[in-house]
Design a protein around this nucleic acid. Structure first.
Length: 845
RNA sequence: GCCGAGGUGGUGAAAUGGUAUACACGCUGGACUUAAAAUCCAGUGGGAUUUUCCCAUGCGGGUUCGAGUCCCGCCCUCGGCACCA
C-alpha cells in the first residue's frame, strides 16, 4: 500500500478533534509552555505559504515541548478589526462583519487542513463584542489613570482612505496601505501616553531574548538621547522686532517663557553642549511661535515670504536629504550665555519643530548640517574641538566626534565627555539650563475616524462635559445594521451620521448626551490579546488573574519582523500599564521572540497586492500538509528570507514516501534464521546503526531547540537513507525513534505509522503523548575515526584508526604510509608536525 | 549618510579555525515499461597531461601549520532608520 496522504491527514484531523487532543487544561502542577503565533487578520485571500511557514515553526516547537512533558498552550485567533479588514469589505461592497466571518471560516479551514495543534476552544476574535468589551474596558482604565487623553493635533490624513493615520502607518510621507501622499490635518484626537513609559521601554529591552535587530529598531524608534536645555536672551535688531498678534498661554508654557518679561528668550536643546563655544548662529524651525517676536521690520518681508514658501513644500520634499538647506535671517541676535558672544538668529527648514525645542544652536565646525548651511550663507565657522593628538579637526569639513576642547575658556583641555557634564553644571548653577533626556517617541494616536473598530467609550454632555461611559454599559456596541459605513471626506467617523448610536443619557446628570464617534485603532486590540487566550470566555472580568499569573508571560512568540516596532512596542507598553493597574504580575509580555524570514516568490515578497501569492491549498491536495510543512522548514534557515520553489516540495514528498516504505517493509519481512557468520555481521551492523540513531537524536533535539529546522530535516534524511540501504533487518526501535523525531514537523504520517507499528493501542493514544527520545552520550562516542593527513595544510589522504591514537603512534602510522611517502622524499624535510587528537595530522615540509 | 543581515555549484543551501560543496531540487545516462508517469541505479563545481594533480566560498591584503569561518581595506545585494540638534 502506498502513502495516501489525503486519507491519512483527514483521518487523524478528525480523530484529534473528536478526542480533543489539542485542548489545553489549566493544570498548574505541570511545567507550562506558552507558544504563540502573531494572530492574523482575516484577509479575503486566505493564508499563503509565507504564513504557513511561521505557523509550522511554532507548531513544531509546541509539539516537541508537549512530548517533553510540558503543558503546552498554543492558541489562535483573529485580528479582525481595523483598516485591512475594512478596506477589504469596502472593496467588495460587503459588510465587514460578514466578510470577516467568511474569511475567518476559510482561514480556519486552511489551518485545520495543515493540522496545527491549536486549542480552538480558546479562539478569540478582536471584532466580537465579547472581546472588544474588554478593549473598551482597558481604554477606561487608561483614561482613569490619565494615560488616555484628547488633544487637537496635526495628524496624518490619507485623502484616499479618508482616514487619519498613526505616524507608524505613514511610510516616506505616503499612506502605508494605498501609497497616497498624506496631508496634515488638524483634528481632535485620542492619544495614549506611551511616552510616560519611554525609559522603561528602552531599559527593559536588555533582558529580553529577542533578535538584536528588533531590539535596536525599538531603541532607535524610542530614540532616547541625553542632552542639555538652556536659554539664550535675545537682542532685538536695530529697529525693534515685530509685535506678535497673539501668543497663547500654552505656547508660552511650551517655550518656557513669561510674556511679561521685557526680554525674550529662546530655548535650545543640544546633545553637544561641549561645542557651545563654537556656536556662531542659532536657528528656529519655520513654524516656531517666537518668530513674530524676533523678526525685525527690515527683514519682515523676507521672513514672511520664506515661511510661505516652506508651507507650500510637501513634507517628504522637506525631509529629503538631497534637498538643499534654505534659510533666512530674522534681524535679531542672541547672546551665547557661555561667552557673551552676539550671534544672529536664523530661520531654516532643516530644523524641525517637533523635536527638542524647535530651536538649535548652530556649531558649523562640529555639525555637518550646520557646516553646509554656514558655508552657503557665509556664516562664521569656529573650531572648538581638536583631535586627541592636538591637531586641527576640521580640515575636511565638520568634525562631529568627541575630542579635546579649545577656545572654550575655563573648559579648555577637557574631553568632550567631561565638558558636557561641567558646562551643564555651570548652566544649572547660573539658572540658565539643565541636563535633560529627550525622545523621538511621540504619544500614540489611537483614535480612528472609521467604522470598523471598537467605539471609544466616552460621552459628551453639554452640562457635565467629557465623561467616561459607565463600566456596566460596556460593551458600547458598534451598530451593525447600517448601510453606509464608508469613511467620510470631512474627517468624521461614519458613526457620526447614526443618530441612534450618538444619542445617549448622561451618566452624571441624566440629560441628553452624545457619544464619541471615533473608534479605537486595531493596534490597541492586538496589544493585549495574548492575555485573553488564558480566559477567552470570561464575561465577568478581562481575565482571571491567577490563571494569567500561571501562563504568562509568553514563552515563545513567533511572527514576521514587520511588527518589530509597532505591535511589539505597543504590546510591551500595555503590559507595563496592566502591571501598574495591578491586573498582572509581569513586566514583559514575550520572553523569547522569533522572527521567521519572509517567503519570496518570483523575486518579490509574497503579498496579495503584488499578486505573487502561492496558495497552500493545492499543495495540500497534491502532496499533503506534512510535505508542505516539512518543505517550508527545509527551504532555508528559519530567520532568513527564502525563495519559494514549486519543485522543491517533491523532495520531501519522496522522503515521506521512503519512510512509509521502510515501515511497510519492516512489517512484511519476517526475521530469518541466520548462521553464525551472518549473526556476527548483523550484530556489528546493528551496533553501527544504534550509534547513528543516538547521534541523530542528539542532532535533531539540539537543532530544533536552536530553530535550525533545515538541518533537522537533512539529518533525518541522512538517517533514512542509511537505514533504507541496510541489508539487514532494522530494529523496530530504530524506526520508532525516527517517527518520533519527525512527528513535530510531520504529525499526520507519524501518528499513522505509530499506530501501524502498535496495532494494539487505541485511537485515543497518540505519538504526541510519547516521551521525546533521549540519547545515550556514551553511545555517540566513536571508537574509530578517519585521521585526516595533511601536507602543508592540504588534505592528501586519510586512514581509519583508533579514536584515542597518540601523537607518536599517529606519526609512525602516517610516515610509513605509502601514499604519504610519495610526498616526503626525505624525512629531514619535515619542519613541523601538528597533531590534533581525534581529527587530523598536518605535516609541514 | 548611519545601523543591521548577507554574498559558497545550474538552483535552495551545509560546514565547533581542521576532509569545502552535506541534504535536497534540477540536469545527464541507464534499468523497469508497448509508452509515459512513478520508482530504482550511476554521474553531476571548473580545469588538466584523469590510478593523480591544479584552481575555486564577492574583490585585495593580513594572522595561522591550516581561513568560507578571525583581522584590515574595498565592491555588491537586501532590510531598517534617516536634517532627531
Amino acid at each position: 500500500m502506498s502513502y495516501l496522504h489525503q486519507k491519512i491527514e483527514k483521518k487523524w484531523q478528525k480523530i484529534w478533534e473528536k478526542n480533543q487532543s489539542h485542548k489545553t487544561r489549566n493544570v498548574f502542577k505541570k511545567r507550562k509552555f506558552y507558544c504563540l503565533d502573531m494572530f492574523p487578520y482575516p484577509s479575503g485571500e486566505g493564508l499563503h505559504v509565507g504564513h504557513m511557514r511561521g505557523y509550522s515553526y511554532s507548531d513544531a516547537i509546541a509539539r516537541k515541548k508537549k512530548m517533553e512533558g510540558y503543558n503546552v498552550l498554543h492558541p489562535m485567533g483573529w485580528d479582525a478589526f481595523g483598516l485591512p479588514a475594512e478596506n477589504f469589505a469596502l472593496k467588495h461592497t460587503i459588510h465587514p462583519a460578514k466578510s470577516t466571518k467568511k474569511n475567518i471560516e476559510n482561514i480556519k479551514k486552511q489551518l485545520k487542513a495543515a493540522g496545527f495543534m491549536y486549542d480552538w476552544d480558546r479562539e478569540i476574535n478582536s471584532s466580537s463584542s465579547e472581546y472588544y468589551k474588554w478593549t473598551q474596558w482597558l481604554f477606561l482604565e487608561f483614561y482613569k489613570k490619565g494615560l488616555a487623553y484628547q488633544k487637537e493635533a496635526p495628524i496624518n490624513f490619507c485623502t484616499s482612505c479618508k482616514a487619519s493615520l498613526a505616524n507608524e502607518e505613514v511610510i516616506e510621507g505616503k499612506c502605508e496601505r494605498c501609497g497616497t501622499l498624506t496631508i496634515k490635518k488638524n483634528l481632535k484626537q485620542w492619544f495614549f501616553k506611551i511616552t510616560k513609559y519611554a525609559d522603561q521601554l528602552v531599559d527593559d529591552l536588555e533582558n529580553l531574548d529577542w533578535p538584536e535587530k528588533v531590539k535596536t529598531m525599538q531603541k532607535n524608534w524610542i530614540g532616547r538621547s541625553y542632552g542639555t536645555e538652556f536659554f539664550m536672551q535675545v537682542l532685538h535688531g536695530e529697529k525693534g522686532a515685530m509685535k506678535p498678534e497673539k501668543i497663547d498661554k500654552f505656547t508660552c508654557q511650551w517655550l518656557g517663557i513669561n510674556l511679561d518679561e521685557e526680554l525674550v528668550k529662546i530655548k535650545i536643546f543640544t546633545t553637544r553642549i561641549d561645542t557651545v563655544f563654537g556656536m556662531t548662529y542659532a536657528v528656529l524651525a519655520p513654524e516656531h511661535p517666537l518668530i513674530p517676536y524676533l523678526t525685525t521690520e527690515k527683514y519682515k518681508k523676507d521672513v514672511e515670504k520664506y515661511i510661505e514658501k516652506i508651507r507650500d513644500i510637501s513634507e517628504i520634499e522637506r525631509m529629503s536629504q538631497e534637498k538643499e538647506k534654505t534659510g533666512v535671517f530674522t534681524g535679531s541676535y542672541a547672546i551665547n550665555p557661555l561667552n557673551g558672544n552676539k550671534i544672529p538668529i536664523w530661520i531654516a527648514d532643516y530644523v524641525l519643530l517637533e523635536y527638542g525645542t524647535g530651536a538649535i544652536m548652530a556649531v558649523p565646525a562640529h555639525d555637518e548640517r550646520d557646516f553646509v548651511f554656514a558655508e552657503k550663507y557665509g556664516l562664521e565657522i569656529i573650531e572648538v574641538i581638536k583631535l586627541e593628538n592636538g591637531k586641527s579637526s576640521i580640515e575636511n569639513g565638520a568634525f562631529i566626534e568627541d575630542g579635546i576642547l579649545i577656545g572654550s575658556g575655563e573648559f579648555d583641555q577637557l574631553s568632550s565627555e567631561v565638558a558636557r557634564e561641567k558646562i551643564t553644571q555651570w548652566l544649572e548653577n547660573q539658572g540658565l539650563g539643565y541636563g535633560i533626556k529627550k525622545y523621538k517617541l511621540r504619544d500614540w494616536l489611537i483614535s480612528r475616524q472609521r467604522y470598523w473598530g471598537a467605539p471609544i467609550p466616552i460621552i459628551y454632555c453639554n452640562q457635565c462635559g467629557e465623561i467616561p461611559a459607565p463600566e456596566e454599559d460596556l460593551p458600547i456596541k458598534l451598530p451593525e445594521n447600517i448601510q453606509n459605513f464608508n469613511p467620510t471626506s470631512d474627517g468624521k467617523s461614519p458613526l457620526a451620521n447614526i443618530d441612534e448610536f450618538i444619542g445617549t443619557k448622561c451618566p452624571s446628570c441624566g440629560g441628553y448626551a452624545k457619544r464619541e464617534t471615533d473608534t479605537i485603532s486595531q493596534w490597541v486590540c492586538s496589544s493585549w490579546y495574548f492575555t485573553r487566550y488564558i480566559d477567552s470566555k470570561n464575561s465577568k472580568e478581562i481575565f482571571n488573574k491567577k490563571k494569567v499569573k500561571h501562563w504568562l508571560p509568553v514563552d515563545l512568540y513567533i511572527g514576521g519582523v514587520e511588527h518589530a516596532i509597532l505591535h511589539l512596542l505597543y504590546a510591551r507598553f500595555f503590559t507595563k500599564v496592566m502591571l501598574d493597574l495591578n491586573l498582572t504580575e509581569f513586566s514583559e509580555p514575550f520572553i523569547h521572540l522569533f522572527n521567521q524570514g519572509m517567503v519570496y516568490y518570483k523575486g518579490m515578497k509574497m503579498s496579495k497586492s503584488k499578486g505573487n501569492v502561492v496558495n497552500p491549498d493545492e499543495f495540500f491536495e497534491k502532496y499533503g500538509a506534512d510535505s508542505m510543512r516539512i518543505y517550508s522548514l527545509f527551504m532555508g534557515p528559519a530567520e532568513q528570507d527564502v525563495e519559494w520553489n514549486d519543485q522543491g516540495v517533491i523532495g520531501v514528498y519522496r522522503f515521506l514516501q521512503k519512510i512509509w516504505n521502510i515501515v511497510k517493509k519492516h512489517q512484511s519481512t519476517v526475521e530469518q534464521p541466520l548462521d553464525n557468520i551472518k549473526k556476527m555481521e548483523q550484530l556489528k551492523h546493528s551496533k553501527k546503526l544504534e550509534q547513528l540513531m543516538h547521534k541523530t537524536i542528539k542532532k535533531v533535539s539540539d537543532d530544533i531547540d536552536n530553530f535550525k529546522f533545515n538541518t533537522v530535516i537533512s539529518c533525518l534524511m541522512e538517517y533514512v537513507n542509511k537505514i533504507q540501504n541496510s541489508e539487514f533487518r532494522i530494529q523496530k526501535l530504530e524506526i520508532e525513534i525516527l517517527i518520533k523525531l519527525l512527528a513535530p514537523i510531520a504529525p499526520h504520517i507519524c501518528e499513522e505509522l505509530w499506530h501501524q507499528l502498535h496495532p494494539e493501542i487505541s485511537e485515543k493514544e497518540s505519538i504526541f503523548n510519547q516521551p521525546w527520545p533521549k540519547y545515550d552520550p556514551d553511545l555517540i562516542i566513536e571508537e574509530k575515526f578517519e585521521l585526516v593527513i595533511q601536507i602543508n595544510g592540504k588534505m592528501r589522504h586519510s586512514i581509519e584508526t583508533e579514536k584515542n591514537i597518540s601523537e607518536i603512534e599517529a606519526k609512525e602510522l602516517v610516515l610509513k604510509n605509502e601514499k604519504i611517502k610519495k610526498w616526503i622524499l626525505d624525512e629531514t624535510q619535515i619542519k613541523k608536525i601538528i597533531f590534533i587528537p581525534g581529527r587530523l595530522i598536518n605535516i609541514v615540509i
